[in-house]
């Protein structure tokens, strides 16, 4: 994922191994923009989205998943995800989404 990010995008990148770790990073304020996988141990992406909404955490979530079922995309958007990127990640698509939502200007990032 990190390699698919535009190299000129000046952000600090934090990595989390699972959903619980990811939430910690977000709670610490280090997940302004979150690239969220759905299939994860301990707490999956749906659980993360639910918690972000419940706790009203400050995170713009872009789901990055191999789960390309139409239902998965609808669900995560209904749960507050801003965009959906299919795996394997196309660096150009990632750039297009970051530009489209105007978040390339800056911000921290996680996963």
């Amino acid at each position: 994922m990190a390699r698919a990010l535009p190299p000129e995008w000046e952000v600090e990148v934090f990595f989390a191994n699972d959903g619980l770790e990811g939430l910690e990073v977000i709670r610490q304020g280090n997940g302004e923009v979150v690239f969220l996988d759905l299939t994860m141990p301990n707490l999956d992406g749906y659980g993360v989205l639910e918690t972000i909404r419940k706790e009203d955490l400050p995170a713009m979530v872009i789901v990055v998943s191999g789960d390309i079922q139409p239902d998965a995309q609808t669900r995560v958007k209904n749960m507050g995800a801003m965009a959906f990127i299919k795996k394997p990640i196309d660096a150009e698509k990632a750039r297009a989404i970051l530009t489209e939502y105007g978040i390339m200007a800056g911000g921290a990032d996680d996963h």
Binding site: T39, P41, S65, G66, I68, Q69, P70, D71, K87, P88
Partner: peptide, 27 residues
């Protein structure tokens, strides 16, 4: 795991469309 994750997602998508149901994807 990443490669299989993508491949099984593609397979699940095909199955989901065939059955009109949602396939739960594991690790």
């Amino acid at each position: 795991q990443e490669i299989v994750n993508v491949a099984m997602g593609q397979a699940a998508d095909r199955l989901a469309r065939l059955l009109d149901a949602y396939v739960v994807l594991p690790i």
